[in-house]
């Protein structure tokens, strides 16, 4: 894929819904199109799956209050990323304080209800495993680029890092993904009954 700054860095057709072209979007539009993005960003920032819903709710309440401040010339996903990161940081601070107070182990979260096929869920779990193995810098760039379909300039704006850093982190993450998928294939060849 030729790397231009304003085209998504992924060519696999996985990008999120079409970008909102003009005018300020409504809260409903933002919610419908970007709920999954916000949820996954929260996960990439280290939020547990059972808490990502709460993060998403807080993010969209902020969106509800602050949408009038959004400039349509900016990248909406980059703006959402900034809000999500702030919400996550605040929750992490609160969580740290709470952890200091509570020594008891919290009960495990109830299992999520199955909504997709077992294979799909397993693949998603593998992907989550891969993402968890990345350091956060690479994980966030990879998620925004190859999962959410943001352009390099949008990622650079959201993360406030140079474009060169975006590309280098993305390259490193892709190499690791390739190695990871090769290991998965090798594992399935060795133990076909496990699939």
């Amino acid at each position: 894929m030729s790397k231009t700054l304003d085209t998504p860095l992924t060519s696999a057709g996985f990008a999120a819904g079409p970008a909102i072209e003009c005018g300020a979007p409504s809260v409903r539009e933002v919610f419908t199109r970007h709920l999954g993005t916000v949820w996954r960003i929260a996960r990439a920032l280290g939020v547990a799956a059972d808490e990502a819903d709460d993060v998403a709710q807080e993010v969209f309440l902020v969106v509800h209050r602050r949408l009038h401040t959004f400039e349509p010339s900016r990248s909406l996903p980059a703006w959402l990323f900034g809000i999500t990161r702030n919400v996550v940081l605040m929750r992490q601070r609160a969580h740290t304080r709470r952890e200091r107070r509570l020594s008891a182990v919290e009960p495990p979260a109830p299992p999520r209800e199955p909504e997709a096929s077992l294979e799909l869920q397993q693949a998603a779990a593998f992907m989550q495993e891969f993402l968890d193995g990345l350091d956060e810098d690479k994980r966030v760039v990879f998620l925004l680029a190859d999962v959410e379909g943001l352009t390099a300039s949008e990622i650079a704006e959201a993360l406030e890092i140079p474009l060169g850093t975006v590309f280098s982190r993305l390259r490193a993450a892709r190499i690791k993904l390739e190695q990871f998928s090769q290991r998965l294939r090798a594992r399935s060849v060795r133990r076909p009954h496990d699939r």
Binding site: T10, A12, F14, L35, G36, W39, R40, R43, A52, D53, A56, R112, E113, E115, A116, E119, L120, Q121, Q122, A123, A124, F126, M127, Q128, F130, L131, D146, V147, L177, E178, F180, S181, L184, R185
Partner: peptide, 17 residues
């Protein structure tokens, strides 16, 4: 397979209905 992983992740990694 990497693309499939990403697609699966995008489909499943989101809040439940």
């Amino acid at each position: 397979s990497a693309r499939a992983l990403i697609a699966a992740y995008r489909a499943c990694a989101r809040p439940s209905a």
